[in-house]
């Protein structure tokens, strides 16, 4: 690891100022991805801005919205009574991110800011049509994800909260990469009054994406069988030592059906 200056600002304004004033400064949330990256000397920040003292952690329900603070850990989301009541699929998703040690420190905001193409959370945020609140504005999920490791966040912009509309039905089904246990294919399905949304993580060449054909079919009939015969384009899938594009395309279908079954 290269050395850096460490700062732990006490206010959002100070954190934004520190990050905005220095392009080499980097924000530290849970650090579960960022610290390994630093250890491999793949990143050389001037200053690491620890977001841990900004009071961004917490879970609340307001009307039909579940609001999760950006620094809320996966473990907290998984164990939260509010989340388990409002969107149990989200608690289930959080309970299978990384491992127990990672879930104590990894945060929803960190995961979304990093937008790893095999992270779990982006699929939930996109499928649930969540909105991402930052210190500057509110961004809809459809606008937020812009390809792997790329988001709509401006330099220095800090996620503060994620607002989820509570769906009628939702579920997440994940096929884990055998080695890393990240999502090789993760499918989040959500049925709301506005319709059905299906978001896929892990599989695509360009990060999390919505599956229009699945959504159309499920809008007609929200059953696993509704997905029979609907292919996922193989040429848009990732391929690596753990699975071919064809395998991933197939798994997208299998996991989508399992998610729909679980959401009943």
């Amino acid at each position: 690891m290269y050395d850096f200056t460490y700062a732990k600002p006490a206010s959002l304004a100070d954190a934004a100022k520190a990050l905005g004033g220095d392009v080499e400064a980097k924000a530290l949330a849970g650090g579960m991805t960022f610290i390994p990256v630093l250890k491999q000397r793949l990143n050389k920040p001037s200053t690491v801005i620890d977001l841990g003292a900004l009071g961004l952690s917490g879970i609340k329900v307001e009307g039909n919205k579940l609001i999760i603070g950006a620094m809320t850990t996966h473990g907290t989301v998984a164990a939260s009574t509010e989340v388990n009541k409002a969107i149990p699929a989200l608690a289930d998703l959080a309970s299978n991110i990384g491992d127990r040690q990672v879930r104590y420190r990894g945060t929803i905001g960190g995961s979304l800011a990093n937008n790893d193409p095999s992270a779990c959370y982006p699929s939930a945020v996109l499928a649930l049509g969540a909105t991402i609140k930052t210190n500057e504005r509110t961004i809809s999920a459809d606008d937020y994800f812009q390809g792997m490791f790329t988001t709509a966040l401006n330099p220095g912009e800090i996620i503060t909260e994620v607002h989820f509309s509570i769906p009628e039905k939702a579920a997440y089904a994940k096929f884990a990469n055998p080695a890393s246990r990240y999502a090789m294919v993760g499918v989040f399905v959500a049925k709301t009054t506005a319709g059905v949304r299906v978001a896929i993580t892990g599989a695509g060449q360009n990060g999390v994406f919505r599956h229009a054909a699945f959504e159309a079919a499920l809008a007609k009939s929200f059953t696993p069988d509704a997905l029979n015969g609907i292919a996922t384009p193989v040429d848009e899938m990732n391929a690596d030592i753990h699975g071919s594009a064809a395998y991933r395309a197939h798994l997208v279908g299998v996991m989508a059906k399992r998610a729909v079954a679980a959401a009943q």
Binding site: A179, D240, H242
Partner: peptide, 11 residues
């Protein structure tokens, strides 16, 4: 070596 870490080599 493609499976050069425990992220890709399944222990």
């Amino acid at each position: 070596l493609l499976s050069g870490s425990m992220m890709d080599y399944t222990m």
